[in-house]
Write a protein that binds this DNA or RNA. Structure first.
Lengths: 125, 125
DNA sequence: CTAAGTGCAAAATATTTGCACGATC
DNA sequence: GATCGTGCAAATATTTTGCACTTAG
């Protein structure tokens, strides 16, 4: 049976409160001042659990760090090669319908990611 | 100036000789018997260099391991959640044309990945 | 009370890097 | 002989885990 926990709630709330698609360390850094006795291990454990339950989704690993998304509706992402920002792409969705046409197995979901340099980084070059 | 090296050639050849989209450790394991004085660091260094040069492409990180693809032409992949196999998907290509429509930055490429359980793993369940 | 959650630190994993040596141009 | 490539091992970086303690149900 699953129990309640302030820390767990805070971690989920933290991921939900941002559009930055954070990694575990970012969540930890955000919450640590507020919850001084928070442990990084707890953040990892809860993020893994949320992902397992389907409450949050993993966007993928950017420069070695797994990034999470509170929005579980399928949508495309843009990832900046320069600053590693992960940004939601409006108006373009992953072609989930094509899952059925994938021959090599039973595809359940699909991920669409655009790579490039974000508007902000382009300016700073 | 870039120099020649048997080990470098062997590493590239190894990636090219398989459709398994290997990671560094797999390449190392393949070549080690053949080239006993090969170092894992060298494999990492060369794969990173090839990727930089655009000779090979990174498919992404599957369960913590970065996987490479000798085919740099854009194409979709299927990744098995169970056995972590990375398989080329025929007939479906990433919508590169949409890069121009991505609002949040200058998208240069896009990645399309299907997730699910591969035919082989489905049988073994 | 029982089961689940957590802190802490150590362990496990994957990758990078410094340096001396060896290979290539 | 200058430059680049490599082995080796140590260093990083990220994530996982064992265990004792705490907390929610």
């Amino acid at each position: 049976m699953k129990k309640h926990s302030k820390k767990r709630d805070a971690i989920l709330e933290c991921v939900r409160s941002t559009t930055s698609h954070p990694g575990a360390d970012w969540v930890y850094a955000q919450l640590k001042p507020e919850i001084p006795d928070l442990s990084l291990g707890t953040v990892y454990r809860n993020l893994a659990a949320f992902k397992q339950e389907g409450v949050i989704a993993s966007v993928g690993t950017v420069k070695g760090i797994e990034r999470f998304d509170a929005t579980t509706e399928p949508h495309a992402h843009f990832i900046c090669d320069s600053c590693s920002a992960v940004i939601d792409v409006e108006g373009i969705d992953p072609p989930e319908k094509l899952c059925e046409q994938v021959g090599c197995g039973c595809a359940k979901s699909c991920v669409l990611i655009f790579n490039g340099v974000c508007s902000q980084c382009v300016q700073n070059l």
